[in-house]
Design a protein around this nucleic acid. Structure first.
Lengths: 334, 334
DNA sequence: CTGTTAGCGCTTTCAA
DNA sequence: TTGAAAGCGCTAACAG
């Protein structure tokens, strides 16, 4: 079932069939209707491999994300999918599970697939074979959540956001505020947030606590628990993401501590689920869906205009501090 | 940068380059190494549109899921992605947001893309244009989470699972057990679970409560709350999925009820997050990743064997009841 | 407005 | 083992 079959059945040339589908305005309403009817009866669907091969355009955007288990990226992907669909693009999403070489593999697949543009969340934009490859081939790309001078990025001002939430905690009387993060080396996001934490603490003339680094998600509850039960435990935990905040709440509970009475816990990301949790998560909200939407817009507009996308296209989106129930004013346990 | 460039640079014919990539054994080790070196230097990546057009094989599996916001499907997709990668397939995932016509559109896209097989979670397998289309074109497909006689399906025994958790509640003294679900019409899963609930209640000679139907996720907390504060409120809530269970916990809290002391709440799905919540979710665990893996295996094996996939290939995977902290023995409030 | 035709990059006979 | 050449389905000149 191909264009030739349809042409024969409709009694027209393949060129006319092609036009009826690709540029309907170049064909009489009558013949177009006829061809559509015939095509429908035959169940004809144009072969996109052939079309892509011929036109060198796929109307596909490649998407590289760390994981979909973290709802942040699932939400972002929903935003991407919706915006892409609106603009006539399909998406080809790949998850890397935080493996850097998977980023490069994904990009190779995208190149083979003739994607028109790529949207990525990478580990380290400063040093990325995947990005080098895209740049060398002049394939338009945008980074989401990452922030780097040399690349077009859509992100929030992490340092400012962290400063905001840390200042809020300080304003509520907290002094022993510890930060919880995954491996800092796994993402520039965690590093930025950590830097924000250090700066914020310094700006309030408070000594930062040692970073609570959680190398494996499985062990996180246990590790956080150890820090909550040590001598002079923190009265507040700033978690690098909401998933860690959820686990911190669990760890507190296991340690016999009440949240927020005994320990305040704040997150970062603003996953939608956080609003339905008990206690509601206090967190920095990033506009995750919007983030995806803006990336697609940048890509699609650049593609439409034929202008290459550069770092100048970068956008910083607004974040908000969502006050939930997982953080409260400091109360002296003594 | 195409096969011709590489051939020229390597001083061989394009056929030899093609073989060096596609069937290395048909080429001398020496020439293969030479071609690989040249190709690498040139950054050559074979154009898959051309390959697919020529071979009519894409090594791509289409995947249709309702949404990735529900972690059940995100987890399943992780299983799919991993298994697909292992077997040399890429995946092309599409989310429908529970819109039936989006299922059909996705399948059309898959056909245009020459996918080798399709994995779906549909709304209603009994009546699905998407499935009809796949069947008519002899494209191998498997359903996940759905269960239907006429299609190859990978699922758990929902009715048995629901019976298990309801019996557990009854065994703990609960009698007023209500079920919470989204629109029943939106998925056969919810319908099956509801049927399981009715049967289980009947088997214990307990009158079922009216179904608490939650049409929109946004309003769910409020709606569930109304049911918890009515005259003779249920002492236990069986939720059709974990996301609803989380919202039910929220609703209970808002109504001034303690979970599980005042009301027991159980879910269905076994999302990984449930284990880290406070209280830990009591729920029926489906092997979500495994589900994805099995689907891919079925598809890939069928493709390798060249045998069409039929309902005979269906698999029922084992579920488990995970006892968390959100459900406890019934205590009379008086 | 419609038809003819070349060719996108690749795989695969068929011959050498 | 390698090369020459046909052709997968489609689009876009170009001609009429």
């Amino acid at each position: 079932m191909n264009i030739t079959d349809v042409a024969r059945a409709a009694g027209v040339s393949i060129a006319t069939v092609s036009r009826a589908f690709g540029s309907p305005e170049k064909v009489t309403d009558e013949t177009r209707a006829h061809i559509e009817a015939v095509a429908k009866k035959l169940g004809y669907i144009p072969n996109s491999s052939a079309r892509v091969l011929r036109t060198r355009r796929s109307n596909v955007l490649g998407v590289v994300l760390p994981t979909l288990i973290n709802p942040v990226f699932a939400e972002c992907l929903e935003g991407i999918a919706r915006a892409a669909h609106t603009r006539g693009y399909s998406i080809l999403p790949i998850t890397t599970d935080y493996q850097i070489d998977a980023e490069a593999r994904a990009v190779n697949l995208f190149i083979a697939s003739n994607v028109d543009g790529v949207l990525l969340v990478v580990s380290n934009p400063a040093q990325s074979a995947a990005l080098d490859n895209l740049k060398a081939r002049h394939i338009p790309y945008v980074l989401a959540y990452n922030a780097h001078d040399a690349h077009p990025c859509v992100s929030v001002d992490s340092e400012a956001a962290v400063a905001e939430v840390v200042s809020w905690l300080v304003g509520k009387g907290h002094r022993r505020i510890a930060m919880v993060a995954g491996h800092l080396s796994a993402s520039d996001r965690a590093q930025r947030r950590h830097r924000g934490y250090l700066k914020a603490m310094a700006s309030h003339d408070i000594a930062p606590c040692d970073l609570i680094e959680v190398p494996f998600m499985d062990a996180s509850v246990e590790i956080i628990g150890r820090h909550l039960t040590r001598e002079q435990p923190p009265s507040a935990l700033f978690c690098s993401n909401d998933l860690l905040a959820i686990r911190s709440i669990r760890a507190a509970h296991d340690a016999g501590l009440k949240v927020p009475e005994d320990v305040s816990i704040v997150g970062f990301d603003g996953i939608e689920l956080g609003m339905d949790l008990t206690p509601r998560l206090t967190t920095i909200v990033q506009p995750n869906r919007e983030m995806g939407r803006v990336c697609v817009t940048l890509l699609a507009d650049g593609l439409a205009a034929g202008t290459p996308l550069t770092q100048a296209a970068s956008r910083t989106l607004a974040h908000t501090l969502r006050l939930g129930e997982s953080a409260a004013p400091f109360t002296d346990p003594n």
